[in-house]
Design a protein around this nucleic acid. Structure first.
Lengths: 339, 339
DNA sequence: ACGGGTACTGCAAACGAGTGCAGCCTGGTG
DNA sequence: CACCAGGCTGCACTCGTTTGCAGTACCCGT
């Protein structure tokens, strides 16, 4: 038997479809006699009626879906964010459509086209680059969206980002307290807001704490990856600059540092300390376990979803952005410098 | 300006909406004059017309979406599978709706209800338990679905599973070749088909190779988790049974073993070898890097999606199931037994 | 008794696309 | 010249739901 429709319910309850519709919708229930409403609801339940969101969407121009655009679901950074998003979307009756862009702008554009064709009511975007024409375009088109994790510059869009500056400060301060004075930074790619932001924060933290602020101490990796991180550290080491600790742009870059440690027989943490960023899963299983900055991923997702729902409800509301506090997780990769 | 509709296109091309519809649909294009068709298509392109899948879905009772039911997206096992799924869904014009069940049957039921309400055309289910009444129910209801990774017993549903038996055999054989004769198994929970399946395969591999087939050598963990794995190994160790190598039910359980090694000061691999199962990311970064059985996750997902699309196209086609081959990845956690 | 609320409920028209059926025109044939 | 077939195109209805408007019935006050 096909799924019961609103008409079936109405008929069974002896009312017109319109009345049934009103009775079933909490917002319009007040318009119908309380008894009638009760009866309709009971019948609907008995028949196992489920409103057809497609038909509803056609009429209301609302699909009850939002697009979630991430570079790569396989990156352990994102699943918790997605969890957070769904956690708040779901009770609100929304579902998320997840797409991967593989960091490919063409693919991204295609995917977003596709999402828009599917009538998503909003977008949660985790693929922001510093200069991101597509995002500008979307904003002009009046697509409601919120950025997570990263954000483009000069674009007035709500965003949820970890408080990178505070995080970097935490890392540098920790190393300073251990006694390090020459601390290096292997930064993320300058095409990402997080890359430049953390680098900037690093310099200022170093200055604030009165440590050696030597430009030679910062090197940028050209991707958020292990191998790029390893390359970065190699360049740093080869340059001859002296340092006893490293703040890595993120955990993957820190992992790259581990590779170089092994390759060059550097003892971590005895000879060299390193702190990561993000607190990916399983970092505590490394040898040595990685000291890192923890980001409330799930909370980021949840907050982003909340912002998006707000924006959907009232698109005129001014963009609001949230900075989430981070925390330092001390494990085994940091120690006082060798004397 | 609102998105152009079929009517807009028709009007701009000077034809009736019905004609435009036929011209745009490759299947019915033959019904309209080739020139007219070309004109309509061109106008559609110029206006940037995208058919509204909601409206289309209403008429055709097809939503172009399939549900993907997984226990927990945060488990690194699943993202690659999801990638694989989307990889084949996407070119076929379908999208996937991902839901998490948290291994909670009530939640699972609720989520699946929700998916069905959203008119998904099929389900890819990764949460199968050995005895799974809900799946039986769904099958009776004629929901087309395919199982990935695990499968319930006594249910005639297409499924894609790794060839667990072959994988376990690979692991045991590897250890045997290194010279181990007393090999233990920390199995996954018996409520999952993979748990019992691998345990069964373990016993038979051990027998085949003529090693000690001692029931005391297998202990079951009551979850696929690190802590459950650790508990399992502790019980095994405390029982006093002697063994020099462990086949873990999966990588997380192996990770739990690592915890116990540290806790009891056991040197891996010198005193104890261990091999995992699944080849999660970052296993190579552990100390020692974990030897494990690699599963073609992405391929599993892709294959599952293909099966599902087939089943959607022709629901009468008999259930077909696929067993995917595994491979052994030798890293640092296995070595010859201490003499 | 009548006018004016109020409280419901039904009617019908949407939303955007797909589709059976009927009608148009054209060209060819007898 | 009449007729028919075939090739295109348009009409109108449908999918399931929402919603403005109109209508009915009832109650109240004057």
């Amino acid at each position: 038997m096909p799924a019961p429709t609103l008409r079936d319910v109405a008929e069974a309850a002896g009312v017109h479809a319109a009345t049934a519709s009103r009775a079933l919708n909490p917002a319009t229930r007040g318009l119908v006699n309380a008894d009638t409403a009760r009866r309709v609801i009971k019948v609907a339940e008995q028949l196992g009626y489920r409103p057809n969101p497609i038909a509803r969407g056609l009429k209301t121009a609302k699909s009850g879906t939002v697009g979630i655009v991430i570079p790569d679901l396989t990156n352990p950074l994102f699943p918790p964010i997605v969890r957070g998003i769904e956690e708040v979307l779901e009770p609100a009756g929304y579902s998320g459509l997840i797409v991967n862009t593989d960091n490919d702008p063409r693919r991204e554009e295609w995917q977003i086209q596709h999402l828009r064709a599917r009538q998503v009511e909003g977008l949660i975007v985790a693929t922001a680059r510093v200069d991101h024409p597509l995002m500008k375009q979307l904003q002009r088109d009046g697509v409601v969206m919120v950025m997570v994790n990263r954000r483009p510059e000069g674009l007035d869009v709500p965003s949820i980002t970890p408080d990178d500056a505070a995080g970097v400060d935490l890392a540098v301060r920790h190393l300073a307290e251990l006694g390090h004075t020459r601390i290096a930074h292997v930064a993320g790619p300058p095409s990402t807001s997080t890359g430049v932001g953390r680098a900037r924060a690093f310099r200022s933290a170093v200055r604030d704490l009165g440590l050696d602020d030597d430009p030679a101490l910062v090197e940028t990796a050209d991707a958020w990856s292990e191998s790029a991180g390893a390359d970065g550290l190699r360049r740093l080491l080869d340059s001859g600059t002296a340092f006893t600790a490293i703040v890595a742009g993120n955990d993957l870059i820190a992992l790259g540092c581990y590779d170089v440690f092994r390759e060059r027989d550097i003892d971590c943490p005895a000879e060299m300390s390193v702190v990561g960023f993000n607190d990916m899963p399983f970092l505590d299983k490394l040898r040595p376990p990685l000291t890192t900055i923890a980001i409330p991923h799930q909370q980021i997702g949840a907050e982003a979803a909340r912002l998006l729902l707000d924006a959907i409800a009232d698109p005129t509301r001014p963009a609001r952005s949230v900075l989430l506090p981070l925390s330092l997780v001390v494990r085994g990769s940091t120690a006082p410098p060798a004397t």
